[in-house]
Design a protein around this nucleic acid. Structure first.
Length: 414
RNA sequence: GUGGGUGUAGCUCAGUGGAUAGAGCACUGGACUGUGGCUCCAGGUGUCGGGGGUUCAAAUCCCCUCACCCACCCCA
């Protein structure tokens, strides 16, 4: 019989690791709740076209990495490769978008991309993200980055910084895109094959290319800052001001563009500990709600890659103190069957093993499970109407009478 | 999609053509039938990833294949 192994790109989170995940999840959710964010839960499955329209059909995420298939009725559906599209869809569909106010939403869950797995990258991976709808004020851009900054501080991460840039509003972005297209068309022969194709499909992405020849080629090209309208310039300036006021460490990278088509104006990425990969990234998407059939509502958000974040966080798990119940003999086992549930009913953690027969093997088991105390009940104890509690660390033992024993046990926990 | 590395016991890994394939940890039993950890003794640890080939002889060399890891692309 062949053993089953996990499907490529999938991973288990085993019990010891779950404690770390839960710790980080708690830091994340509690932080964003203090900023006024409320959780939204959307399906893992959406219409394929939702992602095509939001992220962009030409993007790598859609063209190469989407988990898409037809269901039994022939509908084109896809596993979500990111969270924003679904949240925007729900924001519109639920009617939340009708109310004129700022909405702050957060989400958490698995995303799917058909990538080649490697360090910090999985086909099913977890993202924690936030979206803020209803204002294009640049201080909101600053606020979400500052919140991210607070999160990395709370998790005690070292050596981190933000890369920020602006792509301009839709007009500026398109104008700049045309300028780049024109500039690079004349120099097409110096570009890599991918970038030659991108001249037509997504010229801005060429700025992000790591190929040295491409870098050299566009190094003389105009930067976005040169062609922005006044509003966009002011927007970015105010955003930077907000970051400075809150001591957020950042660098402007005029070549920072994002792999998703929907971004406008502010974009940013968070790098930690000299890692190559960003652990969080986001930006503003002022026209996405409208593009997906909703009203003209601006928004800004980010997503954190959980696996990448978790690999950088130091955490030493602490277990709640608990008892191991050792019952020897039939009488004792019956007494123990009552006591163990009386204790658990008082929220006192107790483990036992019904199979073990000798005191020696019970104590071995208590030791193995890491119990703080072992409660010992044998025939002698039944006769004397009292039982033994052994401290597993010191070896010290005390006896406690069966009547009103709960309070004595509780004293040990203090 | 491209390139590189690695697959041997439950886990971490030795073993580069030669005998019945090894170590540590873990596991099971015993020394120790009412006191765990420590020590000592004994014991399974096995399709050497799978298939084919070369050879008197293959974990070892060759080919194919699969899986995992790393890097590129891209992304979080």
């Amino acid at each position: 019989m062949d053993r089953y192994i996990k499907v490529r790109g999938m991973h288990d989170i085993l019990p010891d690791d779950v404690l770390k995940w839960q710790f980080i999840e708690k830091v994340l959710t509690e932080t964003v709740k203090h900023y006024g964010y409320k959780e939204i839960r959307t399906p893992l499955v959406e219409s394929r076209s939702l992602f095509e329209r939001s992220i962009g059909s030409e993007s790598d995420i859609i063209s190469k990495e989407i988990y898409a298939f037809k269901d039994r009725k022939g509908r084109d559906i896809a596993l979500r490769p990111e969270g924003t599209a679904s949240v925007v869809r729900a924001f519109i569909e639920s009617g939340m978008c009708a109310e004129k106010k700022v909405f702050r939403l957060y989400y958490y869950g698995p995303m799917f991309r058909y990538d080649r797995p490697q360090k910090g990258r999985y086909r099913q991976f977890y993202q924690f993200g936030i979206e803020l709808f209803g204002s294009e004020h640049p201080f909101f851009d600053g606020e979400v980055v500052t919140m991210l900054h607070m999160i990395v501080n709370k998790l005690k991460l070292q050596k981190y910084y933000f890369l920020v840039n602006t792509l301009g509003c839709l007009k500026c972005k398109n104008r700049y895109s045309d300028i780049i297209k024109e500039y690079l068309s004349a120099r097409e022969n110096y570009l890599c094959d991918d970038c030659k194709r991108r001249i037509i499909t997504s010229p801005l992405r060429i700025l992000d290319c790591k190929n040295p020849d491409c870098k050299q080629t566009f190094s003389g090209a105009p930067v976005i800052g040169d062609v922005l309208c006044n509003d966009c310039k002011e927007h970015f300036k105010a955003f930077e001001e907000y970051l400075k006021l809150n001591n957020v460490p950042y660098k402007v990278d005029p070549y920072l563009v994002r792999g998703l088509d929907y971004y406008t104006r502010t974009v940013f990425e968070l790098y930690v500990g000299g890692e190559e990969n960003a652990i969080a990234a986001g930006g503003r998407y002022d026209k996405l709600v409208q593009q997906l059939g909703g009203p003209d509502i601006p928004a800004v958000g980010f997503a954190i890659g959980m696996e990448r974040l978790i690999s950088l966080v130091k955490y030493s798990p602490s277990q709640i103190p608990f008892f191991y119940l050792a019952c020897i003999g039939k009488e004792a086992k019956l007494k123990g069957a009552i006591m163990i549930n009386e204790l658990r009913n008082e929220d006192i953690a107790v483990e036992t093993d019904y199979e073990e027969e000798s005191l020696s093997s019970h104590l071995k088991m208590a030791n193995k499970t890491g119990a703080n105390w072992c409660i010992i009940i044998g025939e002698d104890e039944i006769k004397r109407k009292e039982f033994i509690v052994k401290n597993m660390l010191s070896g010290h033992q005390i006896t406690i009478p069966f009547n009103n024993y709960i309070n004595r046990i509780k004293e040990l926990l203090k």
